[in-house]
Design a protein around this nucleic acid. Structure first.
Lengths: 177, 177
DNA sequence: ACCTGAACACCGTTCAAGT
DNA sequence: ACCTGAACACCGTTCAAGT
């Protein structure tokens, strides 16, 4: 007897994102996610092979949402940097997982498009890829450190972010040595 | 009847580091660590309050070892960058945990000394702190991305690293705008 | 004093049985 | 077809009992 689905993959991923943000990666259990969508844990295995696969889907969704934010906000590297930081502050737990082996290549490529575009605008097409990687690496590392509390040593974190952004822009536009 | 200790905190941390590198964070179980030092899991609770405390000790030891490497290798930012990257390649699992909430403030401060020194050399004392943060954020983010496989999109990773390092140095020494 | 077996709670995962 | 209770393996953690 066919019975209608009681939930969807999208709903499960959304529930998992909420659990993750509320309880951290350790609190992201199959039971907690299942309870939030109104089923029992074993039902989730019909949709995702195991917890790792669900986590991977969560990270992919997060990267796509980050990419959409960057597309909206973004014209130049300054706008991208602040949109990036705002996203990390809103969704710290999810952001922490973006650059882990859970991330899928396709999602990373999609979300890198606006950064590549802004980088090409600033340094030209030939250097757009390494320039985008410089920018993304800096922003990622800065936020990782900020979220980890690595900036307790003193000084203004906001100022360090703006300083980094301006020096980085200066380096990208400086004449080649 | 007093009995001699069958292991030491240092030995436990060293064992945990080996387990971590060999089996990843998921494989770092109290049983695996205990077996490696020749005791049973419950004995570890005499030395570390819980698994999180052991993980924190592992991260602290890792940061101190990284700091020692940087002290050896390091004169300028170029030397530091390559020492940093070599360490991340040798100990990827441990490196991934350096900028997480497991890291203790003291360890982070100790290991940042050589970077601060090199940054001061390049940009002067006043800007040494934000300059060091720019450098560390870039290197951290780059390696995080490299270890996560985020550079599968094409292009040479080595070249992107050198490009980033040179543009970053150029930005730090460029005249203020 | 330190160590351990036994026990408990909790989680991931499987699967036969329900509808 | 989808869902679930029951079961199993595994892990973190506690603690009374051993030496």
């Amino acid at each position: 007897m066919p019975t209608p689905n009681r939930t969807t993959n999208e709903e499960v991923v959304a529930a998992a994102q909420e659990v993750l943000e509320g309880a951290g990666p350790g609190g992201l259990t199959m039971q907690a996610v299942a309870a939030r969508v109104g089923v029992r844990a074993p039902s989730l295995y019909k949709r995702f092979h195991d917890r790792d696969a669900l986590l991977s889907a969560v990270v992919t969704a997060t990267i796509d949402e980050l990419g959409a934010r960057l597309e909206e906000a973004a014209l130049d590297l300054r706008g991208l940097a602040h949109a990036y930081r705002a996203f990390a502050h809103e969704r710290p737990e999810a952001f922490r997982l973006v650059f882990t082996p859970y991330a899928e290549e396709g999602a990373l490529r999609r979300s890198s498009a606006p950064v590549l575009r802004a980088a090409a605008e600033l340094v030209g097409e030939e250097d757009a890829l390494p320039a985008a990687r410089l920018f993304t690496a800096w922003a990622t590392g800065f936020l990782q450190m900020e979220l980890a509390g690595a900036f307790r040593l003193g000084g203004s974190v906001d100022e360090a972010f703006d300083y980094g952004l301006e020096r980085l822009r200066a380096g990208l536009t400086a004449p080649r040595g």
